[in-house]
Computed example of a mutant assay.
Amino acid sequence: MDLNRLGKEIHYFRSLRGLSQQELARDICNQSEISRIESGKAFPTLQTLYFISLKLNVPITYLLHTSMNERVDYIEETMSLINELVLHKQYKEVYELTKAELKRTDELEGSYVHFLRWQHAVAAFEMNRMSIEECIGQIEAALQDQTARFLFTAQGLEEKMCNSLAILYAEKKHFSRSFYYYDRIISQETMSQSDPELLLKVFYNYGKALFEAGELEKAEKIINKGIRQSKKLGNMTFLGQLYYQRGCCKETREEPSASKDFFKAYAFMEETGKVVLQAIIYEEKEDYFMNETVRSLYPFPKK
């Protein structure tokens, strides 16, 4: 029985719900007992755990599973490895690893199996071993499995799978379905806490898809939300891309202020070390960067 893991999960969900230890303990137990449970020094009675699960809106079966499943470490390590491979676009390795893991589905729990099927489908598509329609079908089938729904939410998988679907549908120019999945992600109230970087990425991708669909006004509105959220969170990861996409919207409408957004995009690319994207912006929007006043303010490369 893993008391530390159970304690960490209770602490995570308590923080997610915005509760203090004292608020969680009210009408259940003493605050000191919650502290001992979260630090892994005590295991609650089933009655206490049941009332904790009710207040946190988490199935008691999930908390029991967390504390008793000896394979959790292995699963988390494997998921972490796959995510790292995806980050570096090593799709062949992802494909082979997920294929090997899926051969042992009888030994594995539901949400992990769906995670593997999702990543396997995306890797197969990226390697041209699966059509975009097949890839979409497999991810949507996983999302519709109600037995794994809570674990999807708890592990943040639902939003990530929806993001994959939104990107795939946009690639097929099925924009209404793409927008449906982007809206589904943004509607999650806890996204800014659970995975702020994914949320910012979604704002950028959503704005880009709206731009490609010709919905410039809505695109700019979504992008502005992304810019505000980036500043609120103090996260500059996608600010460069967001300003660039807003500049593209303004450029299409022939607004002079487009230049300011391209300059900001360039500067934030510099700040975040995205030199490849920085070079692409300069090459694509070179005319905007020829003004001598502007060149004196930003470290643009010399021709």
Rank of each mutant, 00 (worst) to 15 (best):
D2N: 15
L3E: 05
N4M: 05
E9A: 06
I10R: 10
F13M: 13
S15M: 11
S15H: 05
L16T: 08
S20P: 12
Q22K: 08
E23D: 06
A25N: 05
A25L: 00
R26N: 14
D27G: 01
I28D: 00
I28P: 02
C29I: 08
Q31E: 14
S35L: 00
S35V: 01
I37E: 00
I37A: 01
A42V: 08
A42N: 11
P44G: 02
T45A: 08
L46G: 11
Q47G: 09
Q47L: 13
T48A: 08
L49T: 12
L49W: 02
S53M: 03
S53W: 00
K55M: 10
L56Q: 05
P59T: 12
I60S: 06
I60E: 06
T61R: 08
T61S: 15
Y62M: 08
L63I: 04
L64M: 07
L64H: 00
L64Q: 06
N69Q: 04
N69Y: 06
V72N: 10
V72M: 15
Y74T: 14
Y74R: 14
I75V: 09
E76N: 12
E77A: 14
M79R: 11
L81A: 08
I82T: 01
L87W: 12
Q90T: 01
K92W: 01
E93W: 02
E96L: 03
E101P: 01
D106K: 11
E109A: 00
S111H: 04
Y112Q: 03
L116C: 07
H120E: 03
V122W: 08
V122F: 08
A123F: 00
A123D: 05
N128A: 10
R129G: 13
E134Y: 03
I136W: 03
I136Y: 03
G137R: 07
E140I: 04
L143E: 05
L143V: 04
D145F: 02
D145P: 07
R149F: 00
L151Q: 09
T153V: 10
G156D: 06
E158L: 13
E158I: 13
S164Y: 09
Y169I: 05
A170Y: 01
K173F: 10
K173L: 08
H174R: 04
S178L: 00
F179E: 14
Y181H: 03
Y182D: 06
I186G: 09
Q188R: 12
S192I: 07
L199A: 09
L200E: 11
V202M: 08
Y204R: 09
N205M: 03
G214K: 05
L216K: 10
E217V: 09
K221Y: 10
N224C: 09
K225G: 09
G226N: 09
Q229A: 13
K231S: 09
L233M: 12
M236Y: 12
G240C: 09
Y244I: 07
Y244E: 14
R246S: 13
C248E: 15
C249A: 13
E254Q: 15
E255Q: 13
K260I: 13
K260N: 13
D261Y: 11
D261W: 06
F262Y: 15
F262L: 07
A267R: 06
E270P: 01
E271I: 14
V275D: 14
L277G: 15
Q278D: 10
Y282L: 15
E283V: 10
E284K: 15
D287M: 12
F289H: 03
M290A: 10
M290K: 15
R295K: 15
R295D: 04
S296M: 09
S296Y: 01
L297G: 08
F300Q: 05
K302Y: 09
